[in-house]
Design a protein around this nucleic acid. Structure first.
Lengths: 230, 230
DNA sequence: CAGTGTGAACCTTTTCACAGCA
DNA sequence: TGCTGTGAAAAGGTTCACACTG
């Protein structure tokens, strides 16, 4: 293949493959089959092969993929050969957790700054970074060439923070606040909502309970089947 | 419609609609058009109508949807008319953040227990709940009829904790550990990986940078277009 | 001959566009 | 008239199955 613009679904899985590949490499593997990689990433092998074929033909028929080379290719495709300075806005519980999360640094994301508006938090050192005032955002972004912002504020502040980030030159935002934020064309937003994930689980859980109920009573089960999310 | 088993994609958006609807209700709205709800949820109106049609015909042509009634229907469909006791395993930074997150309680999720293996953490009170030993998991699950477990441990412990949860009778797991966990048939798992979200953003950010680069040099741009994630 | 790479079939999701109802 | 509800079309994603190759 080797085309511009990889399918969105594939992009979403590349980091998964990358993590699995790095683990394999650390375990000493030099070569890997699509089947093995699939298992480690929690998908099926056809998907792995199709996904990887979008990056190019990096496998060897009858053998598999060279682990180190594939890691390099996936990193390059994802843009992880460079380092990404990020800014976290909102140093509450979640902001704290993210600031201390070692997984970011391991993957090339450096926390350039933490910002908040609470005067009690400013000056505090969290995860090795001193908390600054939100007003310093523009300066920090310019100085460190920050392209990615993370919003960990309450929902009520999310839109304003997003606007400030965009004004400061940030073009990619990861939003943990339980709110929809509006941004101009050209700015990417991804959101993670912890409560939403639980609600989705609750739906399937409830259906499982209903199914068990029906089974117990010996009613027709056909139309309640397939209750688990794939 | 009103069929058993709503499409997965729709289930994923219902909590989004619910949040928007609750906000609308709090703001005093009694009726809402698909267009308005769509905007508040960050999707388009056709999607809203199709999604809601899976629950039944709860709208009024020419008018819209009754906010209070629709909230009730969405809640019922998601299984949020009942309360869900949950258990959080791993009281590190993220576990702390989740234990203190008010959004859970607001949506009917009650933290029945926090468990960890670190003796220094056991007995500590976090977000109003005392941390207990992982060994107490089965007892806690039985006693509180817990159906949902949340894993906030390091990746290395995730699989073991998942197995213990399943053994204790938990059938739905929300996994924050950066690891793929294997569970038996019938157990649902959803995962949230903070670092993966950033990597996906990095991909699109990198592509935007590449596009800007090409533009600056006046090269053909066509095959690099459509760089933003939808 | 084991395992990749990929057309083709299949399934899911999104979008369109408009009939039909309050 | 204004908006829902929904078939039909289009797009996107997954799975199958096998030709091909190191």
């Amino acid at each position: 293949m080797r085309e511009r613009s990889i399918p969105e679904a594939t992009v979403g899985r590349l980091p998964l493959y990358l993590r699995a590949l790095v683990e394999m490499a650390e375990a000493g593997a030099t070569t890997i089959r699509s089947e093995t990689l699939a298992e480690a990433a929690g998908v099926n092998s056809a998907k792995v092969r199709k996904d990887l074929s979008h990056l190019g033909s990096y496998g060897t028929r009858g053998v598999g993929y060279d682990v180190a080379y594939l890691i390099h290719q996936v990193r390059r495709e994802l843009g992880l050969t460079q380092h990404w300075p990020i800014v976290i806005a909102g140093v509450g519980n979640l902001g704290h957790a993210l600031a201390n999360y070692r997984g970011f640094a391991e993957r090339g994301f450096r926390i350039a700054a933490l910002v908040d508006v609470d005067p009690r938090k400013i000056g505090e050192v969290v995860g090795g970074t001193t908390v600054r005032h939100l007003d310093d955002l523009a300066a920090v972004v310019k100085q460190n060439d920050v392209a990615i912002g993370v919003i960990c504020t309450p929902a009520s502040a999310a839109q304003e923070v997003a606007e400030r980030m965009v004004a400061a030159g940030i073009r990619s935002i990861l939003n943990f606040a339980p709110a929809v934020i509006a941004v101009p064309e050209g700015v990417s937003v991804r959101k993670v909502d912890l409560a939403i994930e639980l609600q989705i689980l609750a739906y399937y859980e409830q259906r499982k309970a209903a199914l068990a109920d029906v089974k117990r009573r010996g009613k027709a089960v056909a139309d309640l089947a397939e209750v688990s999310p794939p």
